[in-house]
Design a protein around this nucleic acid. Structure first.
Length: 715
DNA sequence: AGCACGCCGACT
DNA sequence: GTCGGCGTGCTC
């Protein structure tokens, strides 16, 4: 009897495809197996999602599976279910999500093509060639083809012989572009001997929280909590839970937003627990990623620590899922396949009957609201205020560094103390403008003005990296007077160098490609006290391994408020709060915020460290405006080079989606950045009571619209 | 996605 | 008449 396999391929297709299982694989092939299949003209890695004894495809001429790639299936049934649900939730392709959940080195994609050589250009008219050979060459002149295609197209009987002859004459060559599966016999990391001693803080609220959570953990049934508190206290609770979870012989999945955070944490975990820890993040080398993945797959890893993609790792028997810094945007992967690791963690914990703990000192208002409503908020001790923060009004003090600020910094530096300065803007100035004709240099490919980078003497597009040399004169009117608008980190660095010429001022650049090492150098110099004033963007503030300074200066944090984004206030509050986190916790420490919006509530509340007041006001605004968490929003961004086609298709889409009354449709309208890398962008926003209502129209509307698009879900 | 096919306009 | 643009549809 023939066995049929239902296969999902790693392409943005919803469909599954059927193949015949060859006799030789019948025994070994299972649901979740990784196989090599011929799909169209290429070979690619597919995954078995179902097996059938009856031909499920009807009239199709089915192909055979080319190869079974592993002895044992790569995916378990529960994992297949989990990824299918997660993909569907974010309108991503299941196949792509599955592919993303195994190291690229373990997948195969191949094409064997016939190429035209340099010599063949002249050789094409050689008398010794037959008509068929000439036909082959003429075809190959345009571009390389695969053998099977040539065979079909030319209907030449003995194609193989002709190709061999041509190859001998040096007119063509065949190249197989395959990424073969690598055999890897490496041993796992030998775990460090750890101390099981937990120096868990004797804080009353932490102990209460830990007790409550441990009880839920022991029930081994799904429950979730939002742990609101400062990093140290959260960590205390996490480690307590990890210890108990290990005692239950259950695994732990610990998610963090940034790679920079992991190293410190890993060291702590390794010091405290004897178990095997696997680390996953996007900047691992191929080899290390494969090893970490195998450690997890084999069940050897007891604690899995990683960034968002760790949610796709094959951990089984999970008792505890932690998402630290729950509010962090980097948990949402916006590109193929799109998914939110926070939702993934929720599905995973639900499936595994695990305890889900979201932790934050500044929870997203969405999470905070839901936790309050559904009674799963755990409030650790009140978060200490950021310290003494002064807000300086730009309207009253126009100078970048006022006399008062100058004096304050000077006295700090005199005491051999370090100063941290932050700006929301990369580069030197936001843009240049001609003072005569008001011309603003813009990117050729994107709808955005170019940012001036003084050090590089260049104008750079922050969307596509398009770069032009800095010009002294206006290219439009030839005027020599060019104004620089907007204050970037470079200006601030320059100003400090001018004011404190004898001090060591460094600018932490995040945008200079390939300068990772220099960044780390700057950071370690700062740690060693070799830098007096360190200037950086919010990327620097994002790092947890930055030693606190006794003075923090924040310049114009309101730039994030200018974004046309319902989350603008939250982003501003969060970014200031994170910057202030680096202020030393003692009564002599001071922070200064220089802003043109001194009365803005997110700036004021961040300055006073009053999350609660911020939350109350922001949630009020969300309620009035019917934004998440009071509604679910789907943002669909259509992209195409051809603006007319794009406009037409997005109008059709909007019309299709408008049919239901419970869905509010905004747009189609030009996206905030209307062109990126030469591609125009039009967006449509759907607003509804919940995700269900969105799903009821969006799925079918998307499948009918054949144009490149991305979908983002906010709720 | 990626690629072939098919249907219309502008040229040797 | 043919070349080639892009819109459409399929991949087991």
């Amino acid at each position: 009897m023939t066995l049929y396999a239902e296969v999902i391929v790693p392409l943005p297709l919803e469909k599954t495809f059927y193949y015949i299982v060859p006799e030789g694989f019948k025994e070994k092939i299972k649901i979740g197996s990784k196989v090599l299949v011929s799909f169209r003209q290429t070979l690619l890695t597919g995954f078995i999602v179902k097996l059938h004894w009856k031909n499920p495809a009807g009239k199709y001429k089915l192909k055979e599976i080319k190869e079974l790639l592993d002895d044992k299936p790569v995916f378990t049934s529960p994992f297949l279910t989990y990824t299918r649900i997660l993909a569907a939730y974010f309108y991503s392709s299941w196949g792509s999500l599955l592919q993303a959940s195994i190291p690229p080195s373990l997948t195969v994609k191949s094409r064997k093509r016939v190429f035209f050589t340099d010599k063949a250009g002249e050789g094409i008219n050689m008398a010794s060639l037959s008509n068929d050979e000439k036909k082959i060459l003429t075809l190959l002149q345009k571009k390389p083809y695969m053998e099977s295609y040539l065979k079909r197209k030319l209907k030449v009987g003995d194609l193989g012989i002709y190709l061999q002859r041509l190859e001998k004459k040096g007119l063509i060559f065949r190249k197989e572009e395959v990424q073969r599966k690598k055999r890897n016999k490496d041993k796992f990391d030998i775990p460090l001997a750890g101390q099981l001693e937990i120096d868990f803080s004797q804080d009353k609220k932490s102990i209460q929280a830990a007790d409550k959570l441990t009880k839920c953990l022991s029930k081994q049934a799904f429950s979730r909590f939002l742990l609101y508190g400062c990093a140290e206290k959260r960590e205390g609770v996490y480690f307590y839970l990890i210890k108990h979870c290990l005692a239950l012989k259950k695994r732990i999945l610990f998610l963090v937003p940034e790679i920079a955070f992991t190293e410190d944490l890993i060291q702590k975990v390794k010091r405290r627990f004897t178990g095997n820890t696997a680390i996953l993040h996007s900047r691992l080398t191929e080899k290390k990623r494969e090893l970490a993945w195998k450690t997890i797959k084999d069940g050897a890893a007891e604690v899995v620590i990683g960034t968002r993609s760790a949610i796709l790792s094959p951990v089984e028997n999970v008792g505890l899922v932690i998402i630290d810094e729950e509010q962090d945007d980097s948990y949402y992967q916006r590109q193929n396949p799109a998914y939110d690791a926070r939702i993934g963690a929720w599905f995973k914990a639900e499936q595994e009957g695990a305890l889900l703990v979201l932790g934050s000192a500044f929870p997203s208002v969405e999470a905070r609201f839901r936790a309050g409503e559904q009674g799963y908020l755990i409030n650790l001790e009140k978060i200490s205020s950021p310290g003494q923060v002064e807000i300086v009004d730009e309207g009253k003090e126009r100078r970048l560094v006022s006399d008062s600020l100058y004096k304050q910094i000077k006295s700090r530096l005199a005491k051999k103390e370090q100063v941290l300065a932050f700006s929301g803007r990369r580069g030197y100035s936001a843009f240049l403008t001609c003072s005569r004709c008001s011309y603003i240099p813009r990117c050729k490919h994107c709808d955005i003005s170019l940012t001036y980078h003084k050090k590089r003497e260049e104008l750079v597009c922050h969307y596509c990296n398009y770069t032009i040399k800095y010009m002294n004169a206006c290219p439009e009117c030839g005027s020599k007077v060019v104004k620089k608008k907007g204050i970037g980190v470079e200006v601030i660095g320059e100003e400090f160098k001018k004011k404190f010429p004898k001090k060591r001022v460094a600018v932490f650049h995040t945008d200079e490609a390939g300068n990772k090492r220099r960044q780390e150098d700057i950071l370690s110099h700062y740690k060693d006290g070799k830098i007096d004033i360190l200037v950086g963007t919010s990327m620097l503030a994002h790092r947890l391994d930055l030693p606190p300074a006794s003075m923090v200066v924040i310049f114009y944090p309101e730039i994030t408020l200018a974004l046309s984004d319902y989350k603008a206030s939250q982003k501003t509050f969060l970014s200031i709060s994170q910057m202030l986190r680096h202020l030393k916790k003692d009564k002599d420490s001071r922070a200064v915020i220089k802003t043109a919006m001194p009365n803005n509530f997110s700036i004021k509340m961040a300055a006073s460290g009053d999350y609660h007041a911020f939350y109350e006001q922001e949630i009020q605004y969300r309620r009035i405006m019917n934004y998440p968490p009071f509604s679910c929003m789907a943002e669909i961004v259509f992209q195409d080079e051809n603006l007319r086609v794009l406009a037409e298709k997005s109008r059709q889409f909007a019309a299709r989606v408008k049919k239901k009354e419970d869905i509010e449709v905004l747009g189609p309208a030009l996206a905030p950045v209307a062109r990126v890398r030469g591609r125009n962008r039009i967006q449509v926003i759907l607003k509804a009571k919940g995700k269900k209502e969105i799903d009821s129209v969006l799925k079918s509307a998307l499948s009918k619209s054949h144009i490149k698009k991305s979908v983002y879900i906010y709720e």
